[in-house]
Design a protein around this nucleic acid. Structure first.
Length: 353
DNA sequence: CCTCCACTGGAAGATCGGGAAG
DNA sequence: CTTCCCGATCTTCCAGTGGAGG
């Protein structure tokens, strides 16, 4: 007896989610082998090699890294994996805390107000018993690169750093850079249209029921997604859910055209939604005005924030907000000193077509 | 030349909220 | 309950920068 109504389109919704780690990896054999080789020494109790992976959004960096770590931790009990997205978890404390949680130490850590150095000490002890591969996604969004130094000096920890930009670590502390100088650099190039199509076909085969979507429709999604697998898979998810909700047996072409722009925006929008109100207000002003002088932006910000009953903020804090938004790649500054102006960063503008 | 202006950003200290101990 | 300690965040203070204007 099925517990839910029979689905007409979706066979397994998990397969269509961005975070899903597939059972096999397509068109990334080189990177796959490179990561495996870096991790291999761990199996013999030797020091693994840290990695730095970079490439445009949707090129498989996160997926492939997590795939290999899953594969390894399924193969041996002596290695564990920990995944951290630095956008969500950007302070030293939160990152160490999250790694400890992934290593199963959440309870004992809770005594007293827990100082960060104590977390580090706990982690050190834990790593003596079991190695850990730590994936730091969106590592350029880190607030404080001290934690990179902490982690890079830990015995038994292997780092996989992920970033959109090849130069993400150029601004880091020299001690961090020298610690990571021997890291293996792996580039993830943009997928070709054919490669995206293969990935989509794979997801559709496992995620959807047979006949739910036509090959020509998958081709359309693949060619419109410009080599970004996240956009492609997100589009597939949107059209499948829409068709399912309307009790259709097949995806409509018009649904695909509606879903594509939504899928392209969804990643940045989701990120902005997660920000505190003051941050969102700054983004909002910049989006409605385009380019704004620093002084004007502050005045407008103060006006609107009192209008909306947000707590008053002193100018220095406002500058901290803007700094953080620039670090997150949502705001761009032009000009120096007194003639500085800010504008919203267009998502994806840095990546070639 | 000097001073003012408008802004940046470092440093230090205050405050907030959460969790734990007394 | 209060008190204490922690990280995170915000405020206060201030030195620095560089064009505008006397």
């Amino acid at each position: 007896m099925p517990m839910y109504d029979e689905n007409m389109i979706i066979r397994d919704a998990r397969v269509l989610r961005e975070q899903f780690i597939p059972g096999r990896v397509l068109h990334r054999e080189g990177q796959l082998d490179a990561i495996r080789n870096c991790l291999k020494p761990m199996l013999k109790g030797m020091e693994p090699r840290n990695m730095f992976t970079f490439g445009d959004p949707g090129t498989g960096k996160t997926c492939i890294s997590r795939f290999v770590v899953e594969e390894l931790s399924a193969h041996t009990v002596s290695v564990q994996g920990s995944y951290i997205n630095c956008w969500e978890c950007s302070s030293r404390f939160k990152i160490l805390y999250s790694i400890l949680q992934d290593m199963g130490l959440s309870l004992s850590v809770h005594r007293k107000g827990t100082p960060t150095d104590e977390l580090l000490g706990n982690l050190k002890k834990r790593l003596e018993q079991r190695c850990c591969v730590i994936i730091l996604d969106e590592v350029d969004k880190l607030e404080d690169d001290r934690v990179l130094y902490d982690l890079a000096t830990l015995q038994g920890a292997c780092l996989i750093l992920i970033s959109n930009s090849e130069t993400a670590l150029h601004g880091a502390d020299p001690r961090v850079r020298s610690r990571l100088a021997s890291a293996e650099c792996l580039e993830f190039p943009v997928y070709s249209g054919g490669e995206i199509l293969d990935i989509l076909k794979d997801r559709a085969e496992w995620g959807l029921l047979p006949g739910a979507i036509k090959n020509a429709q998958l081709e359309r999604i693949a060619s419109a997604s410009n080599g970004d697998s996240r956009v492609a898979i997100e589009t597939l998810r949107i059209v499948a859910e829409e068709a399912e909700n309307q009790d259709l047996r097949m995806v409509h072409d018009s649904s695909i055209e509606r879903a594509l722009p939504r899928a392209m925006e969804s990643s940045t929008e989701r990120n902005i939604d997660m920000l505190a109100p003051h941050y969102r207000l700054i983004i909002e002003i910049l989006e409605s005005r385009g380019k704004v002088d620093a002084g004007k932006l502050l005045k407008e910000f103060r006006k609107l924030s009192t209008q909306r009953g947000l707590p008053d903020v002193v100018d220095r804090s406002f500058r901290n907000y803007v700094d953080r938004l620039m670090q997150l790649g949502l705001v761009r500054a032009e000009g120096g000193g007194r003639w500085r102006s800010y504008s919203p960063e267009v998502p994806g503008a840095h990546s070639g077509k």
